[in-house]
């Protein structure tokens, strides 16, 4: 039986800058519940005049870390919530949240693999929760992450991806840069396309479970391509973030 979905007040215990546009907030939650990787939390802000607004943010941390959750927030310049979360919130502040929420875009090791994760921009956040969980469980499930960013400086969790992939023969992390590749870059420098998907998937074999997350237009293009390549639609799970650019 699931407990009722209730708002609770978490405390910000840590704020980490990931990239110039993204920060990770660590929240300690009095009514913490283990999430399934891929789930999100709703965040609610209330102004002194009573004005209230809500947004959803994916959990970035693995559920093995009890009592707290990481939310990685990309700053939307004209947004009303993300600039607040990025610029104003400090350790010691309180934040009203409810979650974890959503059973559709989730993966855990009990579902098995092979696992194909495709992220654009901050769409990589719930995919990171899946990879952190996979690592915490030391599950040798074949996994590929294809991660599209505008430039190298916008890559979130870069050093941790390198560390995760290092010494894990079953995990491969592939980057593509759509605007500016770093000097000497020999990898992909274009938007994700069917040829790229084919190359990344090649070594995964049959029965792939895929999770695609990012700006809506990227998710549309990738999920249509995966289905056209023969993946059953039920194994292509999507999470569209709306209009933010890649």
């Amino acid at each position: 039986m699931q407990p009722a979905l209730e708002w609770q007040v978490g405390e910000v215990t840590r704020v980490r800058t990931e990239t110039p546009r993204t920060k990770t907030l660590t929240l300690a939650l009095p009514k913490w519940m283990a999430h399934r990787p891929g789930q999100h939390y709703d965040v609610s802000l209330t102004a002194p005049d009573g004005y209230r607004t809500e947004r959803s943010y994916s959990a970035a941390s693995e559920p093995e870390r009890a009592g707290e959750v990481d939310l990685t927030v990309e700053r939307i310049d004209d947004g009303e919530v993300s600039p607040y979360l990025d610029d104003v919130l400090m350790p010691g502040d309180q934040l009203e949240v409810r979650g974890p929420i959503g059973g559709y875009f989730v993966w855990d090791v009990s579902l098995g693999g092979p696992l194909l994760l495709i992220g654009g921009g901050s769409g990589v956040v719930p995919l990171m929760a899946m990879l952190r969980h996979r690592a915490a469980q030391k599950a040798p499930i074949p996994a590929r992450l294809l991660y599209s960013s505008r430039s190298a400086q916008e890559v979130i969790y870069r050093t941790e991806f390198e560390r995760l992939a290092d010494g894990d023969g079953e995990l491969e992390v592939v980057f593509t840069f759509t605007r500016h590749a770093p000097p000497g870059w020999t990898g992909y420098q274009r938007r994700i396309d069917p040829a790229m998907l084919d190359e990344v998937m090649q070594s995964l074999g049959n029965g792939v479970r895929s999770y695609v997350c990012g700006p809506t237009l990227l998710v549309e293009a990738v999920s249509n391509a995966l289905v056209a390549m023969g993946l059953p639609a039920g194994r292509v799970r999507t999470e569209r973030f709306g209009p933010t650019g890649t």
Partner: peptide, 25 residues
């Protein structure tokens, strides 16, 4: 719970009289 430092949207004084109640510019 009021979120410290969150002021929501704007109702600038110079156009306040053109904004219906509960509306933001």
């Amino acid at each position: 719970m009021i979120s410290r430092g969150f002021f929501g949207r704007r109702r600038p004084a110079e156009v306040e009289n053109r904004l219906p109640p509960g509306q933001y510019l």
